[in-house]
Deep mutational scan, measured.
Amino acid sequence: DHWHVHIDGERIRLDGASEEFIRTLEELIRRGTDARELKEIIKEYLR
């Protein structure tokens, strides 16, 4: 599956992301997590 998110107007691909990770991201977004912080979390995950 190819997922991607838009954060700060930037399109970030989440290739190979699990549904669990996507749900976690959605939860963080709902909580109002800062965009820079979200991008860091995604970069760490994709390593």
Rank of each mutant, 00 (worst) to 15 (best):
I42R: 00
K43L: 14
R30C: 06
F21H: 01
R47C: 11
D8F: 02
Y45H: 07
R23T: 08
V5T: 08
E26N: 07
G9T: 05
L25Q: 00
R30F: 08
I12E: 01
G16D: 08
R23A: 13
D1Y: 08
R47P: 09
S18F: 03
S18E: 05
A35P: 13
L14Y: 03
R31K: 12
R30I: 11
R11F: 15
I42M: 03
H6M: 15
D34S: 14
T24C: 08
G32E: 03
L46M: 09
R23L: 08
I29G: 01
S18P: 11
H4C: 14
V5E: 01
T33P: 02
Y45E: 04
L28C: 04
E19V: 13
E20N: 09
H6F: 11
Y45F: 10
V5L: 08
G16L: 05
D8V: 03
D15M: 07
I7C: 02
F21V: 04
D34V: 06
H6G: 04
H4E: 15
K43T: 13
H4Y: 14
A35Y: 07
R23D: 06
I42L: 06
R47N: 14
E19W: 10
H6V: 15
D15Q: 10
R36H: 14
E40I: 11
R30M: 12
G16Q: 07
V5N: 02
T24P: 00
K43C: 07
E20T: 11
R36Y: 12
D15W: 14
H2S: 14
E27N: 09
I12P: 02
H4W: 15
R23W: 08
R31V: 13
L38A: 01
R13P: 14
I12V: 09
G9S: 05
L28T: 03
G32V: 03
I42N: 00
E37R: 09
E44N: 09
G32I: 02
L14P: 00
I42P: 00
E20K: 08
R47A: 15
I7N: 01
E19T: 12
I22M: 09
R13F: 15
K43Y: 13
R31P: 01
T33F: 08
D1T: 11
G16V: 05
V5C: 06
R13Y: 15
I22D: 00
I42T: 01
I29T: 03
L46D: 02
D34W: 04
H6L: 15
I41A: 09
R23G: 07
E19M: 14
R13K: 11
R31E: 11
Y45M: 05
G9Q: 04
H4I: 15
S18K: 05
E10L: 04
I42S: 00
G32L: 05
I41G: 01
G16W: 10
R30N: 12
D8K: 03
L14K: 00
I42F: 02
L28V: 06
R30W: 09
L28N: 02
E19L: 14
E10M: 04
E20D: 08
A17C: 12
D8N: 08
K39D: 06
D34M: 06
E20M: 09
R36C: 07
I12H: 04
V5G: 06
A35R: 05
H4F: 14
E19N: 10
D34Q: 09
L25T: 01
W3V: 10
H6K: 10
L46F: 14
L38R: 00
E27I: 09
G9V: 05
R13I: 15
L46E: 06
L28M: 11
T33Q: 03
W3S: 08
S18N: 08
I7Q: 02
G32A: 04
L46G: 02
R31Q: 14
I42C: 02
L14N: 00
I22G: 02
L25E: 00
E40H: 10
D8I: 02
I41K: 10
Y45L: 05
L38M: 06
T24Q: 14
E26A: 09
A17N: 04
H6R: 07
G9F: 04
R11Y: 15
R23E: 09
A35L: 10
I42W: 02
L25K: 00
E44D: 11
E19K: 13
G32R: 00
E10F: 05
L46K: 06
K39V: 08
R13G: 15
T24R: 13
A35I: 12
D1N: 14
D1Q: 11
W3E: 05
I22W: 04
T24A: 12
E10K: 05
E40C: 07
L14T: 01
D1A: 08
E37W: 10
S18I: 04
L28A: 08
D1G: 14
E26Y: 07
K39A: 08
F21L: 07
I29S: 03
E19P: 14
A17Q: 03
I7T: 02
I12A: 01
E37A: 12
V5I: 14
E44K: 08
A35N: 06
E37D: 09
I29E: 02
D8W: 03
Y45D: 01
R31C: 05
R36M: 13
